[in-house]
């Protein structure tokens, strides 16, 4: 590898003992704590934790010996990383060109109106996040939405609203029952 090998690392596990950190440690170990693996490690952190916290960035910075400002710079550069936890349910609206010409914006508008929030936000009760994606690559099925990981194609604003309301209401009811 042309990448420079630097001074041996002082590797120490995260003091919290949180198991998710163990998983992150495995990723870093796989990359031999190379500075160049920063992006891969961040992706893994996003996957494991669901979002990137300050604590997490500091941990990665110290483990990979990458300057903190660089870690912050990289994390804020890529769209993949979110800095707040997502809602219980999330709906990704594809706004790729194909979806756009087939009316993805109307789906976004409808959901925004329904939940009274902008795209990219999470409802105050943490129940639902509305996310915009550049293209999920299922252009043949435009317009496409991804609700809780499930892809739905050839959608209409009404149908999406209905779907989302269903899952959110169900969760709310479950919560209410648990509380009771």
């Amino acid at each position: 590898m042309a990448a420079k090998k630097k001074v041996t690392k002082q590797v120490k596990a995260h003091p919290s003992g949180d198991e998710r950190y163990t998983s992150l440690d495995r990723t870093m170990k796989r990359f031999k704590y190379e500075k160049d693996s920063l992006l891969e490690v961040l992706i893994s952190a996003q996957e494991v934790f669901g979002y990137i916290s300050e604590d997490l960035l500091m941990y990665i910075s110290s483990q990979l010996k990458v300057p903190m400002s660089q870690v912050y710079g990289v994390a804020t550069f890529y769209h993949l990383f979110t800095f707040e936890p997502l809602g219980e349910h999330n709906c990704i609206i594809c706004t790729g060109t194909a979806c756009h010409v087939k009316g993805a914006d109307r789906i976004v508008d409808a959901l925004s109106e329904e939940f009274g929030m902008e795209a990219g936000e999470t409802t105050a009760d943490g129940m639902f996040s509305l996310i915009i994606a550049r293209c999920v690559g299922s252009c043949g099925l435009a317009p496409v939405v991804v609700l809780d990981g499930q892809v739905h194609g050839k959608e209409t604003p009404e149908a999406v609203n209905k779907r989302v309301l269903e899952v959110v209401t169900r969760s709310k009811e479950e919560l209410a029952m648990e509380a009771a």
Partner: peptide, 19 residues
């Protein structure tokens, strides 16, 4: 020292210390 770096991107890009 690398105390600062670019953060964000595009129009929102700015020079930042960590956080």
């Amino acid at each position: 020292a690398h105390a600062i770096d670019f953060a964000g991107r595009g129009f929102e890009c700015h020079i930042a210390t960590p956080f």
